[in-house]
């Protein structure tokens, strides 16, 4: 295999590494993978943490190291978490947004209002008639909302932007 093949293969493997708390999105979908460097048989993967206190980071790190090691021509794997560039919620891919919706989580909004407030539609029925129940949800990256149309509570990924 050439280095290019190896890199492709690594990205394929990374797409199988799911968020331990949301199994419909991978670390690639979330835009957490910044760089994959191959030096001979050694691979360094630079990752961007979503939230700095996210307890899933260690699990993700372990899962990536184990999985990428199985790729042909890879001997050792090192995962580094870096802050530059900072992870922002607009790094989530279109596929990632679909995956979030499947899980019942509204993808983060694209736009912030001037006062910093934001709006998302219901991930189940797409209704705009939703209310914010709690800006803070079950994990650091999620908020809890309620859909007035289909009467379902749902979660949304918080927008995270350097404008904040």
């Amino acid at each position: 295999m050439t280095a290019v093949d190896t890199k492709d293969r690594i990205y394929q493997v990374l797409d199988t590494i799911k968020d331990p708390e949301i199994d419909t999105v991978s670390v690639l979908d979330l835009g957490m993978v910044e760089q994959v460097e191959i030096d001979g048989q050694h691979v360094t993967i630079k990752m961007l943490p979503t939230f700095s206190g996210c307890p899933a980071l260690n699990i993700i790190q372990g899962n990536i190291e184990r999985a990428v090691k199985t790729v042909e021509n890879v001997d050792s794997v090192e995962v580094q978490f870096i802050f530059n560039p900072p992870w922002t919620s607009d790094r989530i891919t279109e596929k990632g947004k679909e995956g979030l919706k499947q899980f019942g989580i509204a993808p983060p909004p694209k736009y912030l209002e001037e006062d910093g407030s934001w709006h998302v539609n219901c991930p189940y029925c797409n209704s705009e008639y939703v209310t914010m129940e709690n800006l803070f949800g079950p994990t650091a990256c999620r908020s809890i909302l309620y859909c007035k149309s289909c009467k379902n509570p749902f979660e949304a990924m918080k927008p995270i932007s350097t404008l904040m």
């Binding site: 700095s52 206190g53 129940e133 709690n134 803070f136 809890i144």
Partner: peptide, 20 residues
């Protein structure tokens, strides 16, 4: 209960900052 969720989420973020 909402405050419990919010406050513990903030607390977790803050421990993350200390860790950094």
């Amino acid at each position: 209960i909402e405050e419990d969720v919010a406050f513990s989420s903030i607390t977790q973020d803050t421990m993350g900052h200390a860790t950094v």
